[in-house]
Design a protein around this nucleic acid. Structure first.
Length: 109
DNA sequence: GCAATGACTGGTA
DNA sequence: TTACCAGCCATTG
């Protein structure tokens, strides 16, 4: 527990959200994880729940390293996410609009 | 406590 | 390859 984020009854994120953010922080540069993969590493919840956590509290973590299972991004973050990955050298598919999950997917540690 | 929401996923056509 | 449908689950009002 790094202490940067903490669950609290004072309107803070739930325990699930804190765990999701902790996993995302562990993703190394140049690697990515799908929403479902994050949920699996957390051990509970699902891709929808992870997506919701990212939309609300994702600003404090490398959110661009979490994307759809097919390597595409949500329209809201597409432009910024692609810029980050190009800067990190993440393997992209021809066209540069999707990440090559085959090569970029993080194994979890 | 119930119903709606959303940065999703897998299967089928 | 793309498009549509049903299931999924934590969070919010």
């Amino acid at each position: 527990m790094s202490g940067l984020l903490a669950a609290g009854p004072d309107g803070g994120p739930g325990d699930f959200a804190v765990d999701v953010l902790a996993v995302v922080e562990q993703i190394p540069a140049g690697r990515v994880l799908s929403y479902g993969d994050v949920a699996e590493l957390v051990g509970r919840g699902g891709p929808r729940a992870v997506g919701r956590v990212m939309s609300v509290y994702g600003s404090g973590v490398p959110w661009w390293r979490v994307l759809r299972v097919d390597g595409s991004f949500a329209p809201e973050v597409f432009a910024r996410a692609v810029r980050h990955h190009r800067d990190e050298g993440t393997p992209m598919r021809p066209g540069g609009e999707r990440v090559d999950m085959r090569l970029s997917r993080w194994d979890g540690g």
